[in-house]
Design a protein around this nucleic acid. Sequence first.
DNA 1: TAAATATATGAGAAATTTTTCATATCATGA
DNA 2: TCATGATATGAAAAATTTCTCATATATTTA
Lengths: 107, 107
Amino acid sequence: MKRGLSQTCYVFFSVISNPTRLAILEGLLGQPMNVSQMIERLKQNQSMISHNLRPLLRCGFIKVERRGKERIYSLNGDTVEHLFKIVENHSRKYCPTMGVCPQRRTK
Amino acid sequence: MKRGLSQTCYVFFSVISNPTRLAILEGLLGQPMNVSQMIERLKQNQSMISHNLRPLLRCGFIKVERRGKERIYSLNGDTVEHLFKIVENHSRKYCPTMGVCPQRRTK
DNA sequence: TAAATATATGAGAAATTTTTCATATCATGA
DNA sequence: TCATGATATGAAAAATTTCTCATATATTTA
């Protein structure tokens, strides 16, 4: 089931609809980091982090730069900031209980 | 693994990272619709549509109004418009091949 | 060049999500 | 109130995604 804009959005959103990847992005919002720092910060094993960096990279959410044996990851542009802002607004306005929203929502 | 903002974002994004739900939202961008119209438009069975409407409703992406036996669904606010705009910008700028992005992305 | 450190990768197991199928509910009109 | 049309729901099967474990690669330093 592939359809124009929806299709692009699907690739885009499926990359960021994952707790580990979101936590990585949230971390990078503060400052660039290497993998070891992410491991420490997220308390996840190295493989986990590494596997999750890949889709973020592939879809241009982040970029990477080599420094010695380390790799420094950082956010690519301000897509992530914008996104997070939208989520905040939306959840404040329409879903204040943050994911534990009421069943129905009628006008 | 639950963490603050990431957690909210996770609920939010997992609701919209699905082709059927995105197509529903894309459709509603044009005009409100009842379920039968969605079935026709998306060429999906009724159960499929109905199951997918629920999370959209629960997280406030859409709202519903009853009219006789029908239910008219429409977008709630302009979260969806904003989101789609961000995706368009991002993919144009960082991922022009739309999901078939190059493996790596180094500065 | 061998060892050590940092990170990536592949494959299978585990977990989650989606889809289908059968059935339930609810409003309307005969 | 019965039949019909519109939509919702629950449970199990099917598909997809995530996670883990073992191993590979690349860079630096001794």
